[in-house]
Design a binder for these strands. Structure first.
Lengths: 183, 183
DNA sequence: CTGATCATGTAATTCGTTACATGATTCC
DNA sequence: GGAATCATGTAACGAATTACATGATCAG
């Protein structure tokens, strides 16, 4: 049976312990969202399918007026997760970056506009970097048996920093062309 | 009238001169594909819509047995392109990276498997980098009035190189832990 | 008591890919 | 003459988002 990548997000989150669909969404929003997003519209139906497939088990807490339903991984689910992690099938890698796209077409602009565009792109990456650093602060209190989420967050921060830096360098070059050094 | 991002890809490509839908697809596949992909299923219907909107004009060459239809930008199309480039609306920025996703969940693996995973991710980025360098060779003969496509390509190569390098560093760290230095 | 958050789910819609159908031209 | 490529298009499908509906609980 073929699972979507997003279903592995769910399995991976459930490996950390019992979780509701709501919990999973909240976790995704402060972690994998930056390289693999997921919405309620995917998570709830997918939980149902995963349960039918025997990869997760859901239970409503008796007497829980909130009719909350928590899921946990079955052994089959753990195996499916590990199989995916160890699989050497080509890695899905997709980027949709409007900033780079605009940059690609920037010959249509006059130099001042080009500069303004690059500044907007830089501001964007700085803002995302700030967001990630905010999350880092929250996560600072987490347990050490799961080190990879933290490493991934560091990677994300570094990634945004480099993109912003590349903008700064390009910005500098264009400025020099516009206002050549006079000494 | 709201245009999709992909329609700006089309407008941007047509700014470089008269092109058929087929031409645009071929151009996208060696350039924007890496940060904004597009397929025939989008391009042909979108060209029709853009023509109805008066942003492009299409004409079938008389006596062309191949029934080829070339499009070019109208002044309104050029304006729409420039307006988009200068707009300061938030930039769409979306990443779906299965490698990073697996890395995030890698605590479920034993160290040898973690190492193998990182190697697969590195190999992936090296392969994409090679692809981009191949394109660079082809593009080396292009005109200078459009400098930004070339800059973007350099950015892409650098981007892949850094991702691969980050994998190499992490790989090294994990190896050290597995086989601590004995002197 | 009221607004924020917790909580589950579905329906409509959008966006995009893949596969298919069809046929001409070019290169060997 | 046959394979690769040029060329246009559509239909079916899939993946994911957004908006909506509904209601409980919690903090002030």
């Amino acid at each position: 049976m073929e699972l979507s990548k997003t279903s592995y997000v769910i399995l991976g989150m459930l490996r950390l312990g019992k979780r509701t669909g709501y919990d999973i969404k909240a976790l995704v929003d402060v972690s994998t969202r930056f390289f693999w997003a997921a919405s309620y519209g995917q998570i709830y139906p997918e939980l149902k399918r995963l349960e039918e497939a025997g990869l997760v088990r859901g239970e409503r807490e008796a007497g829980d007026a909130r009719r909350r339903k928590s899921y946990l991984l079955t052994p089959a689910g753990e195996e499916a997760l590990r199989d995916w992690l160890n699989s050497d099938k080509p890695l899905h890698d997709e980027l949709r970056h409007e900033g780079v796209l605009k940059f690609f077409f920037a010959d249509a602009l006059v130099p001042e506009e080009q500069l303004a565009l690059i500044r907007r792109i830089r501001a964007h990456h700085e803002a995302v970097g700030d967001q990630l650093r905010g999350i880092q602060a929250v996560k600072a209190t987490e347990r050490p048996e799961n080190r990879f989420p933290g490493l991934t967050l560091e990677w994300g921060i570094e990634y945004q920093r480099r993109l912003a830096e590349w903008c700064a360098v390009t910005e500098h070059q264009l400025t020099e062309e516009l206002l050549p050094d006079r000494r």
